[in-house]
C-alpha cells in the first residue's frame, strides 16, 4: 500500500536518508500500520467537528516586555560549528533555495 516511492518522498521531506533495505522495511511496516489506521474510514464523520485542543482556552497572551536573552556563551555553547559568533553550516546549494 505504501510504495517505495512514497517512502522515498516522505523520507526526503523529513530529511532522512534511507538505505534500500530500510526503504523496503519501512514500506512494509508503514503499510501494516496504515492498514490498521484505515479502520477510521469505517466511521461516518461528516457531521463531526475536529478537535485540535482538548482544553477550551483562548487568547493566551503575554505582555510586550523584553526579557534578558541568553548570554552569548550559552547561546553558542552547544553549536557544532561556530564562526564569528554565528552558527556555521555547509553551503545552501542552488537547488535548495527557499
Amino acid at each position: 500500500m505504501v510504495s517505495h516511492d512514497d517512502v522515498k518522498y516522505v523520507a526526503r521531506l523529513a530529511r532522512l536518508k534511507l538505505a534500500d533495505a530500510e526503504l523496503e522495511r519501512y514500506a512494509e511496516q508503514l503499510s501494516g500500520i496504515l492498514d490498521h489506521i484505515n479502520k477510521i474510514a469505517e466511521l461516518d464523520l461528516e457531521e463531526v467537528k475536529p478537535t485540535s485542543h482538548v482544553i477550551s482556552i483562548t487568547n493566551v497572551f503575554r505582555k510586550d516586555a523584553v526579557r534578558p536573552s541568553a548570554p552569548p556563551a550559552a547561546a553558542l555553547d552547544n553549536g557544532p560549528e561556530i564562526e564569528s559568533g554565528a552558527f556555521r553550516v555547509p553551503p545552501i546549494l542552488d537547488t535548495e533555495e527557499q
Binding site: 552558527f87 553550516v89 555547509p90 545552501i92
Partner: peptide, 12 residues
C-alpha cells in the same frame, strides 16, 4: 550571495 557560497553563517 547564496550562489557559489562556500558555507553560510546563521544569526538568530
Amino acid at each position: 550571495r547564496i550562489a557559489g557560497a562556500l558555507y553560510s553563517l546563521i544569526d538568530f
